[in-house]
């Protein structure tokens, strides 16, 4: 069986609703079953990457901690949309996950290369 290349596209900010967390959990499930998976953060999804998150006072699990488990789940390929980072004035030094900054052309290429696309 040839392995299919999955690309998860995250475009939601964390905490406001459950979508960011559920998408990350899909990534972990795929990683746990050794699927070939990459994850791209675009638009408001790049907010997920900010460091210094502390959600204890809103009684939610910390999204930054969840993303930090990616490495152990074998997910090492992640991308962040450069224009989205720039629009939000997010410096690379603030990214908790080592996501590779990519422009929109590169993202479009990644979308083309994937066998399975999942956008949330």
């Amino acid at each position: 069986m040839t392995s299919k290349r999955i690309l998860l596209i995250c475009r939601k900010a964390p905490y406001g609703n459950a979508l960011a967390r559920e998408t990350a959990e899909i990534a972990l499930a795929a990683g746990a079953f050794d699927q070939e998976l990459a994850i791209a953060f675009i638009g408001d999804g790049v907010w997920q990457l900010l460091d210094q998150q502390d959600s204890a006072d809103i009684q939610q699990k910390n999204h930054q901690k969840l993303l930090s488990a990616f490495e152990l789940y074998g997910i090492s390929e992640s991308y962040a949309e450069s224009a989205a980072l720039a629009e939000r004035n997010i410096d690379h030094s603030r990214l908790s996950l080592a996501a590779k900054p990519v422009n929109q052309q590169q993202l479009a290429d990644l979308f083309e290369q994937a066998d399975i696309l999942l956008t949330v």
Binding site: A13, P14, Y15, W47, L50, D51, Q52, Q53, D54, S55, D57, I58, Q60, Q64, R94
Partner: peptide, 12 residues
């Protein structure tokens, strides 16, 4: 403040 802190924006 709690929403700002959760999102990592307190200093920002």
């Amino acid at each position: 403040a709690v929403d700002v802190k959760a999102r990592g924006l307190t200093e920002d």
